[in-house]
Design a protein around this nucleic acid. Structure first.
Lengths: 225, 225
DNA sequence: GCAAAAGTGTTTGGGATACACCCATGC
DNA sequence: GCATGGGTGTATCCCAAACACTTTTGC
């Protein structure tokens, strides 16, 4: 590696695609851009990554500052997604963005520099930059990941009924599943165990609550669906 | 996004993990580092990505310059792998590396700035930087990808026998497969078709040659193995 | 004829799919 | 007693896994 002329790197940025389930709809966290470019448009929470800072740390800092979200506490799962690098993606100049995919539940921005809101993935507003493409890419990755890992845990509370579990899958995959087959299959995977608790709400039979054995990402022995 | 102080980005680099099969062994292309740091060590082909250049283009340029390999011609498949960003990975200073995974066959460096050689993945020399980690990550990704896509095509010649196909899988997966089950299953996937040609070599029955229907990445209907 | 790789079928078990009714509760 | 969601079992089909011998060639 040699310097034949002065080396100038592109700007490095990070962006987060933070998914959650709200009333059995898959939603993504967006912020309203306070400045140009794309002032007033919605965008993924993201920002600059300076030398000396790893991308995940930059992301934590930025998501906390801009959207009031604590990645470590509010997100149950975070992974690097992809690095978007086209020259024209930022009108101010070449910015390479390392993007992350996060999953959580009941993500609530508590303090925020920017107006932060959760939007259904099926009905997104106009988005700044190439953020629509990034969200699509993240959604595809998420669907794939649900098929061969236990990642669904990241969307559920500590204790949950099998109906809630099934509804979570249906919301993200975008199609319905057979109740009996779903339960048989999922229980046979050995990822969850019964608790003594029941959930009672409304005029119907109470539901048994379950817990995940592990809340770390695990690859399934047999893939799902 | 605001500049409260002068923003200085990290160095941006690209690195390529280029796999090929040599005599049914999975090998990876390495170059000998001509300069410090890690002078004399083996490393992945890689280098600096300046502002205005997309990472894939930087990779093409660098791999061509340093190893004499033409990504477009000599590689049958290339995808972005992961972005490695730890601060200490380059002793000269913080360098974020966007890495790529490539697959080809009979990759021969024709002209090279650096000494280039192909090493069996099972027996790598000491490597510079975090390149051992990068190769491991790429190998895992490759194994996973073979299971649910037709990516194996990238390692094979245009026409090949079923035994060659099976041997390619065995080399990369690292374990043996049952011949009858393998043929039955693979033919049922509908990815390949017979040609009229036979391959005769040595004192044994000639082998029917097959071709892939498509030499673009496709996701399998049922996953493999 | 013999060495060496190519090619070929059947059986068995387990998981995927399809499908409909009873249970426990609140009002 | 009725509306609401929770919970359960069986039959069928297809695929995965296990397993050994015949065919074609060069020498």
């Amino acid at each position: 590696m040699k310097y034949t002329e002065a080396y100038v790197p592109p700007t490095l940025t990070v962006d987060a695609v933070l998914f959650q389930l709200v009333q059995n709809r898959l939603e993504v966290i967006l912020i309203e851009r306070p400045n140009d470019p794309f002032k007033g448009s919605w965008a993924l929470p993201g920002g600059y990554n300076a030398v000396g800072e790893i991308t995940l740390h930059a992301l934590q800092r930025i998501v906390s500052e801009k959207a009031g979200i604590d990645l470590a506490k509010d997100l149950s799962y975070v992974e690097q997604l992809y690095t978007f690098d086209t020259v024209a993606r930022d009108p101010r100049g070449h910015a390479v963005s390392v993007t992350y995919l996060g999953c959580g539940r009941e993500i609530k921005p508590v303090f925020a520099e920017a107006k932060t809101q959760s939007f259904p993935v099926a009905h997104l507003p106009q988005l700044a930059y190439d953020h629509h493409e990034i969200i699509n890419y993240a959604h595809q990755r998420l669907i794939a990941k649900l098929m061969y890992t236990n990642a669904i845990y990241a969307f559920l509370p500590g204790k949950f009924s099998l109906s809630e579990l099934q509804a979570a899958y249906e919301a993200i995959l975008g199609h319905e599943l057979d109740k009996r087959n779903f339960r048989k299959k999922f229980l046979s995977l050995g990822l969850i165990h019964e608790t003594e608790e029941m959930k009672r709400e409304g005029a119907h039979r109470p539901a048994r609550l379950y817990k995940f054995n592990s809340t770390k990402l695990e690859v399934l022995s047999r893939s799902f669906d």
